[in-house]
Structures are given as C-alpha cells and as structure tokens.
Nucleic acid binder design. Structure first.
Lengths: 218, 218, 218, 218
DNA sequence: CATGAATGAGTATTCATTCAT
DNA sequence: TATGAATGAATACTCATTCAT
C-alpha cells in the first residue's frame, strides 16, 4: 500500500495540475498578446478560463510571474525548435535555410509570441529575455561550431563570425517585429527565401562587386 | 480697465507656448523612455519640469496624447533626416551608405526613441507608427525613385525593389531594437559598415556563388 | 456487508474526537496569541496541526467560533483554579493571598491567555468575556460569601464589598495586561506580595493615616 | 511681494491642511473605536467625512499610519494633561488625587481612547504605545521626583517607589480597561475616591494591621 | 494663465469557506 | 471521515483628470 500516512480526500493528481497550468498559460498568452500586459485583468483571464480568479493564484503567485511564465514558455519552445535544427548534421547550407525558415515559421504560427516579447520589454524593462538570436549568437558555442562548419565547407567567405550572426540575427529579429507591427501577412518560407537570397548573394551587381573588390585590392 | 481685447495688452506669445510644448515633450520623452508608459506619472513629469501637473494639461489634453506626440516628434525628426539624404543627388552608393549611417546614428544619439517605439506598440496596439522604413518603403515613391537610381547606375543586381527595401529596412529595424534590448553599445558607423558589407556582397564565397548560379542557370 | 449500523463496526470514538478538538484548540490558542486573530489563517493552523484545512471545519464551523472556543477554554481553566481556592475553607487571609498568587501564576504560566483576551475584545467588540474578576465580583454570590468571611474574621475594615472587589479585580487585571504589554517578566509570587502589601496596608505613613482619620472624624 | 517664484493657483494654505488633518483624525478615531481597526474601511471613513477616499491618502499615506496617528494624538493629549498636574507644586496629596482624577476623567471623556489602545495592541503587536503610566513610571524622572516629594512630606510610608508606581499605574490601567470592557458607566471622581481610599489606607482593619506589624516586627 | 487639492474609478490579491472525491 | 482544490467577496491604494482659486 503505497499511500502516504495522512491523506484520504481528493488525490493530489499532479497531472491535472500540470494540465491546468498549461491551460492557464495558453489563455494568458492569448489575452496578454491581444490586449497587452497592463490591459489584461486577472478577472478577465479567470472568466475566459471559466474559473474563479483565486484559482489562477493557486498556480501563479502574481500577475507578473504568470506573464513571465507565459513568455518563458514560448521562448523555450522556440529555442527547442531552433536548437534541434542547428544540432543536426546535414548539409550546412540546408541547415541554415532550415533554421531561417523555422524561425519565421515559429512566429508565423504563433504571432502572439512576438507581441508577448514586446509586452515584456515594455513592462519589465530590466530583465528582458531576447528572442533567441541575440544572446545565443554571443555566448553559445553551438553557433561558433556552426559557423566553422559553414566556413570549412567553403560556403562562406572570410568574415568575422559575429558579423555574420549579428546581421542574420538582427535581420530575422527585425523581420519578425516588422511582420507583427505592420501586419504583413506573408508566407514565412517565401520570406525566408527572399532573405537568404540577399544574405547569401548580396545586392551588388557583378560590375559593382568587381569595382568594389578592385578598390579594396588597391 | 487696462486689459484690452486687442494685441499689445498681452501678446499671447505663441512662441512661448511652443517653447513650453517643446520642453514638455522633451522631458516626457525622457521619462517615458526611462520608466515606460505605464510607470510614468503625470505628477512625476510635472515635478521634473518644475510646474504644476495641471499645467501639462494646458498643453496636452491627455497622457495618451502627450505620449503619442512624444513619439511623433521623434519620428518626424528621423524622417526629416532620412529624407534629406534620400533626396540629395550625389553618388547613389554613397547615399545609401549615408542613409544607413544616418539611421543608426539617429538611434545612437537618441536611444530613448527606440524605447518609445516599443512602449507605443505595447500600450497602443492599434495605431502603431512604425520606425520610418516599414511603411515608407511601401507607399513612398521616393523610395522607388531611389531604387531606380541605384539600379540604373548598375550598382544593384536584378531583384524586386520590395525585397531590397524589406531586407534593408527589417535589418536596420532589427539592429536598432537589438542594440536597445541587448545594451550593445556599438559605434553606429562601424555597425553601418558591417551591415553594408553583408548587404552589398552577401556572405557566399566565390565558389559558393558560382555553384549557386550554375544550379540556377540550369 | 460487514458495516453494521450498530456499535462494533466503527466505534465513532467520541474520545478521539475530543482529543482532536483539544489539539486544535491548543494549536489555535498558540497561533492566535502569537499573531493576532486577523493575522492567523486557517490554513496556517491546519499546517501546524498537520491536517487538511477542511478537517478543522469538521470540529469548528467558523474561524470565529474556533477563536471564541479558544478563549472560553482558557477562561474555564482560570475560573476553575480560582474557584477551587475561593471555595476552600482555610484562613481567609491565606486564601486571599493564594487567590492573588493563583491569578498571577495563571497568566505567568499561560501568557498567551492575556493576549487572547485582548484579541477577543478587538475583534468582537460586543460579546466580551472578561477575565474572571469583572463579572464574577458582581453577580457571583461566592464572592459575597468570601467577603463576609474576611470581614467577620475582623481582617478587613468597614468598606463596601464592591469597592474591595473592584479595586482588587481591576488591579489584578491591570497587572496582567501591563505585564503583557510591557513585557515585564516578573516573578508572579513576588508580584503578588507587592500587590498585597499595598492593598492590605495602603501607602500612608502612620502620621498621614492619623491625620486623615482625624479630619474624617471631625 | 513675498510670493515665491512659481505659483499662482490655489494657495497652499497650511492652516486648512492642519484643519483637514484634524478632521480626519477625529473621524478616524471615532470609527476605529466603534468598529475596530480591521472592520473600518477607508471608504467608510471617506464617506463619513464627505470626501473622496483619495483625499485621505493625501494626508496619511496608509491606513496603518492613519490609525497610529489617531492613537498618538490621543496619547499626546493624555500625557499633556497628566504632566501638567505632576509638574504643579501644590500639596503633593492633592496632586496625587488630582492626577488619579485626571486620568479617569480623560478616559471617561474620551472612552474611544481606551478602545483605540486595545485595537492598537491587537493589530500591531510589536510597537505598542502604553497608556501613559507603564513606561512613564519606569524611565521618567518626574515620577521619581514626585515620589520623593510625597515621601519627604511624610505622607507615604517606606516602600520602594516602583512598587508604588506599579500598583497605582496597573490599578488605573486596569480600571480604565475594565470600565471599557464591562461598560461600567461610573462617575470618574467617585471612582477616583474609592481607589484612593484603598490605596492610601489599605483594606486591613486596625486589628489586622497591628497583628501584621507584630508578626513582621518579630 | 497656472496651480495643486480633490476626486473616484479601477484592480491585484487574500483567505474563510465549501464540497467533490 | 478527511482532504485540499476551488471559490469569489471584499478592500487598500493609485493616479489621470478636473476645476476652484
């Protein structure tokens, strides 16, 4: 009999607890994204969930904590998806295209996430969790390895890895936010292709490129 | 009764009024950027200005209006600077470099502006005024002209103008926000050069470029 | 079906119930005294008892009822101790000294009781159960008898019984509360002796006493 | 023209401010005493005052602060009255009678003060401001002087000053609280006389006194 | 015109109590 | 019978805005 000393009564059911937590996070993410952090009331959230407001507080001690959990949850998902791609060992060029696509697809699939990130920054100016690339690119050696792979394969010309990651990261970041802010409802894969076209080849014509190289060479 | 209805009595001084308005906007921008929209109180602003809170309401009817005017003012400044460059008729390549530099310099000089744009989006989800590029690129014919000029000069390869402006715009947007969020305190001109290097030349090595073109050509 | 309606099946165990009730009252008294009525939560009490909060409600229907029972229990104890002394039939002077000592010892031994009485008054302004003396002195004939005994024995001078009981009662009450409020950690027996010294003999010097009597006599 | 640099608009009027503060304190004292600290809502107080609830917060930052100010105000009044009597230099015996009367009259005149002191103790267990005597008797040299005066005048027999002040202080304290708790609506002067009768002369009969002294003398 | 005292709507959070298990 | 998850009424406090001076 594995039952602990004290207990009859409602069983603890940790699974239910986890499910509830998920439900709350999902509903909260939706509302926070729709109305913004300040304009979302705990009571409204409770109403949407069909529970008493006190119930929410059984799972999250504070509106702030709930909101941040909401962001964290989204970010964890994004990070997992991205890392899975970076970690794979196919053709590095394909990998890169896949990564860009995955990133844009993620925010296309969950447009509220970009909104949440903005809300987070606005409401909690200090501890911002950036959207994957920013810190990742700087302190994660996975990125260094990935760059090395690209470079070794002769795909990428000589240029400082940070420049590469900064440009790619900032560009993707900018795209996601611009998509959000402008309401651009584009196809993420097409957008990925456009981006990669410019990133890979640049915008110079052959003539401009030659002229540029000549000047440099001098 | 010395108070005449006509002029001399009291000049109404519209200049003073404008100066006051400016002072308020400047102080407001600073505070809103420092603490966020929700955490900035009208009273605090009045204290910083050394006036009564009622006075602010003589110039701006609402906190909301004041805040939006603050954003508007910053955006107008940015737009003016950028348009001046685009409008000029020097070497288009130089113009482009200058434009990128101007953009990055602007936000380097006034880091609070990026913050204000985020605050605006967070607090007023509907009517967001994007940061110059986004709409500009789409509905402004100045941009079309500029692109035509670049293209005619043989500088830029064949590619849809929107793709060009989207990529450049999103990238700059992303850079500005990333600079803000990550606290990256970089030199704007160096950053401009890095960006242009990638945008102009792309990241492919010559080999990758040839292989890519061959595949395409097929 | 082994569960019979009659006895043996499950003894109902009224003793266990009483024991539980006692445990709850004891823990409740401690907590209420330590933190005050308003700052003591039913959940906290349950935690201290190692039971679910619902269990407490099986024994006491309300926080209020529980709290009042807590006070009642303490008061019953005090009353029993005091009555035992008053009821005895030794030397009335010794009895009186014993009574004073018993009173002070009680609150020395259970300092939380004084706290509970204060909490009771603060939270339930209407139905206050005073600390033994107050009502006792007025409506209990035991006190009248006791006074008669003291008086008949020639120990006490002519003075209205109420004055006697009021002064003694109020003084003891004041001592107990002052001990509590000031944190005076005195020996109850010594304190009893000090009190009785003044109560019995007064503070006048012989000269003052004579002068006083002469004036009165006139 | 003594007006300061900035200012037209509503004049500061510090007198009005003080009057308002007084009004709030008076109304608050009444309500807190009538219903207890926990059961008095700021909104109710505002309603009684005929002002918006926000107004109260312009004068007192917290319910707690307001309440404590309420107690402080009463205590200051009592202290002033008592000190005035102790400080005088008439017949020490008269002074003592006056002091006892003043104390009892104070609480007769302002019965809510005793209630407030109880509420304070119940709600803020740590920093209790005792009702005049308790600390006074211990750390104030005015009391020592006063005792010396009584003693030198030959009025009081040899007994430790603390015993004297403790008994008198505790007794008065007990009387005040008992009056409150029991609803005893007695005449304060008569009560003072009763108390002093016992305090001065004690309760022993002459016979008991002699017997007591003889025993002691042995 | 400028002021700042007054206002009161709006909201996160607590905790006694209920009741399904 | 014991449990503890769920509930939701209740309340201190904030701050944009108004308007008498």
């Amino acid at each position: 009999m594995p039952t602990t000393a004290r207990s009859p009564g409602r069983p603890e059911d940790p699974e239910l607890k986890a499910r509830r937590e998920e439900e709350i996070l999902a509903a909260a993410a939706k509302l926070f994204a729709e109305r913004g952090y300040a304009d979302t009331q705990m009571q409204t959230l409770a109403d949407h969930l069909g529970v008493g407001n006190g119930t929410i507080y059984r799972y999250f001690p504070t509106k702030e904590v709930l909101f941040l959990a909401t962001v964290e949850r989204g970010l964890a998902e994004l990070t997992a998806e991205m890392d899975a791609i970076i970690a794979g060992d196919g053709d590095p060029l394909d990998q890169m295209r896949d990564a860009v696509r995955a990133y844009l697809r993620f925010f296309h699939r969950r447009p509220e996430m970009a909104e949440l990130f903005i809300q987070e920054r606005a409401a909690f100016r200090q501890h911002h969790r950036p959207l994957y690339f920013v810190t990742k690119a700087e302190d994660d050696c996975k990125h260094a390895e990935f760059f090395a792979k690209l470079h070794k394969a002769g795909i990428i010309r000589d240029l400082p890895p940070e420049r590469f990651f900064n440009v790619v990261g900032d560009l993707l970041y900018g795209i996601v936010l611009t998509n959000l802010l402008s309401g651009r409802g584009v196809d993420p894969d097409a957008q990925a292709d456009d981006v990669l076209d410019v990133i890979f080849l640049g915008v110079f014509s052959d003539a401009a490129r030659k002229k540029h190289n000549r000047k440099r060479g001098t």
